[in-house]
């Protein structure tokens, strides 16, 4: 009988679920907005699992992401750093690479060798260079984040100098007020994020030159192009890379005996 292991990744913006069969095959994934209560979100995921015929109470389950402590049916919590690395190794079939995860609240750069995290960096307290930054700017431009990224491809010439999201928003509003084209503003916004990520990347010593993007922006070709250009290497991704954290959690769960008491590592 196959063993299903469950990974729940409650991020600041989106919650992701992954179910892995026998520690090898991804059989189910789902994403939903986290909303205001990660406990309610965890319950919604629980219901979804039951609807799909999985049993969250008797299957091995690991929770990750900033809401990881609010998943009562998980036996164990593991940080998103470790989970993203594991998930990336699974999706990209490599054990030595750099992983960039542009998350809602945190942007992480992870160096992995032999399938194990060697070193990592997270953005400081502020939200510069994160998904939240992009979201707020997209809101100001009245587009969704995906559209903003594609608009950026056709723009040029604008640079957003404020690192602080609140100041950057005022900067964008003044650009709008002065009649700057939306594409050019979008270009400036993406450049700002990519430069911030690149400066984090530069601080980490990374084994080899393979670099993968995980998280919610994995399906934006322009973000990948812009990151590749700025870092001077080819950054690639995977359509399922937004689930990297959840997949990593499910893989970690595989092999946990269900009788184990819930613990933190």
């Amino acid at each position: 009988m196959p063993v299903y292991s469950i990974g729940v990744d409650i991020g600041s913006t989106c919650a992701k679920l992954a179910v892995v069969e026998d520690g090898r095959t991804l059989v189910h994934q789902m994403v939903m907005p986290t909303g205001w209560s990660s406990a309610e979100t965890a319950q919604a995921i629980y219901d979804q699992l039951e609807r799909q015929g999985y049993c969250p109470d008797s299957s091995p389950c690991v929770a990750t992401g900033y809401g990881r402590l609010n998943v009562p049916y998980a036996q164990k919590t593991v940080t998103e750093i470790t989970c993203h690395a594991k998930g990336a190794a699974f999706l990209f079939g490599t054990e030595a690479c750099a992983i960039i995860d542009i998350g809602g609240q945190d942007t992480k750069v992870i160096a992995m060798a032999d399938g194990v995290v060697q070193d990592f960096l997270m953005n400081d307290k502020c939200s510069a260079g994160t998904g939240r930054f992009l979201e707020i700017m997209a809101n100001t431009l009245c587009v969704d984040p995906g559209t903003l990224c594609e608009l950026a491809r056709r723009g040029s010439g604008v640079s957003i100098s404020s690192m602080c999201t609140v100041f950057a928003e005022s900067e964008v509003i003044s650009l709008i007020g002065s009649g700057t084209a939306k594409e050019d503003i979008a270009y400036g916004i993406v450049e700002s994020i990519v430069n911030k990520v690149a400066s984090q990347y530069g601080k980490l010593s990374v084994p080899g030159d393979r670099c993968y993007l995980t998280g919610g922006l994995c399906e934006s070709p322009y973000i990948l192009e812009s990151l590749s250009r700025t870092l001077g290497l080819t950054v690639t991704s995977h359509p399922l890379a937004r689930y990297a954290g959840a997949i990593g959690a499910a893989l970690t769960a595989h092999g946990l005996a269900r009788s184990e008491r819930r613990t933190s590592v």
Binding site: E80, I81, T82, D106, M122, V265
Partner: peptide, 23 residues
């Protein structure tokens, strides 16, 4: 870790420290 006496970075510090120990 770069921090101060406020509580504003508790979540992020916890993730960093936990990830470091997992590593």
């Amino acid at each position: 870790l770069d921090t101060d006496y406020s509580q504003s970075d508790v979540g992020q510090l916890t993730t960093r420290i936990a990830a470091f120990i997992e590593m």
